[in-house]
Write a protein that binds this DNA or RNA. Sequence first.
DNA 1: CTTATTAATCAATTTTTTTTGATTTTAATT
DNA 2: AATTAAAATCAAAAAAAATTGATTAATAAG
Lengths: 108, 108
Amino acid sequence: MKSEMTNQNPTMDHLFELYEGKFKAIADKKRLQIMNILTQNGSMCVCDIAPLMEMSQSKLSYHLKILLDANIIKKETKGTWSFYELNQDELNHLLSPELCCLFKPTCC
Amino acid sequence: MKSEMTNQNPTMDHLFELYEGKFKAIADKKRLQIMNILTQNGSMCVCDIAPLMEMSQSKLSYHLKILLDANIIKKETKGTWSFYELNQDELNHLLSPELCCLFKPTCC
DNA sequence: CTTATTAATCAATTTTTTTTGATTTTAATT
DNA sequence: AATTAAAATCAAAAAAAATTGATTAATAAG
């Protein structure tokens, strides 16, 4: 007999998994705060974010990695420093224009 | 001495908490799938969603409650039935127009 | 009144995520 | 070469979220 069609379309399934990952990355108070700090300051190294976040270096690295893996932020290494900045393109694809107030410097 | 100003603005803090909740609610494959099913079928009772999700009743109730608490879906009780539907307003405030393809019936 | 149906809730368990502190890696400085 | 600094990684512990199966509550139907 034929397949049951109770299963989700595999393409859709793949999309849901993709967005699960991205939303999971931004579904965190602290990470939203990091994003907001990057909004206001542009590209920043970890050592400059840390004091603003009042967060240990290892903890901050952990959260930055989650945002980076989800492509919410971008990273550039210069010497011993890692500079992070928001991936505006990604955010525009993901969030409503109204959330721009939080994550676009021009809005507030 | 004065306060340190290392702490976040309380208004912002409150906003981050609000969005943490909303993004957490949609940061799940299964819940995105539920939302997609509601997109395609409009208002549905739990007993009609369950077979499409291949999910136990108690598990489905759990996930619906999370979406409901985050105001992503709305609920209406008729007799013993609970009918759920998407809260389009909320989604429009939250998600990019491009994500409409997933959560607006007119788009796909 | 009794039985059946729908869906919410609960407690216990399992799984996932986050936190912590230490260690490692890489590069810059002396 | 030795020291310092920045940041990533790791393993263990703690915390949070999801799953399971059973129970409960509310309504409908016989």
